[in-house]
Design a protein around this nucleic acid. Structure first.
Lengths: 342, 342
DNA sequence: ACGCGTTACTGACGCGCGTTAGTCGACCAC
DNA sequence: GTGGTCGACTAACGCGCGTCAGTAACGCGT
């Protein structure tokens, strides 16, 4: 088995010193290397099939050029999250653009908290993107104290960590405004998750703001709690139907909305004739629900990309805004209509 | 800023040599360290907050303890794949169990092929799991020649690389057998992808085997091609409806099936009264389709886990089966029924 | 001849750890 | 006392590369 070539081999082959090889490989602009030498080195490297050894340059350079994505979601949440893969792709794309790679670290909330600070302390990664944080996450405070480069995907109230998120409040508000503009007054809300999760809180907040702005009184009976998946949406809707009446419902997640629609169907209510439904996320399947779902588009790829870019900026010690909010877009399909003439 | 402690610091603190610290940290069993010393070192490490420096031990040890997941899918495919996140979680779980971490490398088929062999050559990863391979992937041959530890998630015909996959043939066969046992004879098939993808090929093969075993003649008109997403399923179904008639359809993917169901609805055909539909994958939403979809469950988490375990075995130079096939399970819901009395 | 700068490099150290070959002392048999 | 063995360590090398502090060669002006 032929040993892998090292930079020393390239140096010999090109007739220069190892230092020069290093300069050429790293394309350093602050040292002048004549074009001729540069070419000679590059050709020697190509001839030998030389690839710099990652760990070695990490050791010498102090940088791993790796960012880690820590997923704090529960297994069920990961399985059900239809946009997670897309976010990951966005993150990887931003990382690659900056010469970084992405390590993933699924870490259920009940898990060993410690492994996650270890990622940074062991210098396995230069920075962290933490997705799906909850307000009661303890290890976070511990980590931010040390000023490690961290970006939260999803905000955490009362914690001064750089965060990137979609504008949940405005998105939800727009969705409910849409229902109101159709003439609805009795509008229910099913959250996408318990309010322990910031996103759920914010979407509920948008719902409330819209009602308030329209002068519609809040009714606690109209609010039910979802839990990421379709079954929870079904259960929430069953509860709502049992205790009150309404002509429209805003659901904080398309997946939960699908469950809710199922419950409506079982109860003999037609969408949108009897009840209008608006979702949130615009998962790829939403356009193929029956009826096609009106929803709020969450730019998943861009979200991942923004998180990646922000983290890279932090790692490079560039100034970053403490909070980045991506705009959403209301996608009107066939699940919403004016209320039935009553 | 206090510098991070090194093993030398721990050695001083514990009053032993750096070598001893290394032995203790790595829990080596072939060298004898009395319990007393071991404890002293561990306490010193804890006191200083010592974490071994990843890159350094990688350089010295020759192992990175990282496996990479190379995703050869197109962006649309990633966005639409409802089980990818789950597979990733399975992979990460297997990796962690072996003390490894997972790096993800999305690499669209048109991309720079080179970056992916670089992952191994630069010793960034000890092994690769390649998901979504196509029969025409060129960089693969290049890589397997060098005997790097690689595991394919999804088989590639004619290539002798260890592979882990779900039993697509048997799964598809079971689905179509189910339709046949209900009394169907005119059974259409919409593939989940072009046959360039092995999984699509195999599912089609299962469909054919079932027909053949039941003595039903093949009709090329009954086969249409899907392309990962719902719109392609819709288009395929529109084409089928235009050129032939049938009482049931087997679709190689739940997502594609949803599009097909949409087309059936638009054409005024009822599921399952007029046309029975069977999907493949059992995505979390399948139970909430209208009607709830009969489908073939693909054990996504287990698939990722099996891929991870197999790769770790290969890395450790243990013998591994060249091919691992995970069983599927037919989930009968409400989208299939006996044919309408004709 | 000398001083001063510039260009084009290079020598050698250090990053933090794994590991091999070895040392040192204690204990035992004879 | 000697030889031998065993347990408990340690000194020192090497992993492959980044980078600082040089240095040799050359040009140019005086």
């Amino acid at each position: 088995m032929p040993k892998r070539p090292t930079s020393a081999d390239v140096a010999v082959e090109a007739g220069v010193s190892r230092t020069t090889v290093s300069f050429v490989m790293n394309e350093r602009t602050d040292v002048k290397i004549p074009e001729k030498t540069r070419r000679r080195v590059q050709q020697a490297a190509a001839r030998l099939g030389y690839h710099p050894h990652g760990p070695a340059r990490q050791l010498a350079g102090g940088r791993t050029h790796i960012i880690a994505l820590v997923m704090r979601q529960s297994p069920e949440q990961i399985a059900g999250d239809a946009v997670l893969a897309e976010t990951l792709r966005g993150l990887a794309s931003a990382a690659r653009a900056g010469g970084f790679r992405v390590l993933v670290e699924p870490l259920a909330p009940d898990g060993l908290e410690q492994t996650y600070t270890a990622l940074l302390r062991a210098q396995h990664a230069d920075g962290l993107v933490i997705s799906g944080p909850r307000v009661d996450d303890p290890s976070l405070v511990d980590l931010m104290r040390d000023e490690f480069p961290i970006v939260l995907q999803g905000r955490l109230p009362g914690v001064a960590i750089t965060s990137v998120d979609v504008d949940n409040v405005a998105g939800a508000r727009g969705a409910v405004d849409h229902l109101i503009s159709l003439g609805h007054r009795r509008i229910a809300c099913i959250t996408n998750a318990p309010v322990m999760y910031t996103a759920a809180q914010e979407r509920l907040e948008g719902y409330r703001l819209a009602l308030q702005a329209a002068g519609i009184a809040q009714d606690p009976d109209l609010v039910a709690e979802g839990l990421f998946d379709a079954p929870s949406g079904r259960a929430a809707m069953v509860g709502l139907l049992a205790r009150t009446s309404f002509g429209a419902v805003f659901v904080g997640s398309d997946v939960v909305a699908l469950g809710a629609i199922g419950a409506l169907r079982e109860a003999g209510r037609r969408v949108p004739d009897d009840v209008s439904v608006v979702g949130f996320d615009d998962i790829p399947l939403a356009a193929y629900f029956d009826p096609p779902l009106t929803t709020v588009r969450l730019p998943a790829f861009e979200l991942g990309q923004a998180a990646g870019r922000t983290l890279l900026d932090r790692i490079a010690d560039r100034v970053v805004p403490e909070r980045t909010l991506l705009p959403t877009e209301l996608i009107v399909r066939a699940s919403t209509a004016p209320p039935a003439a009553a």
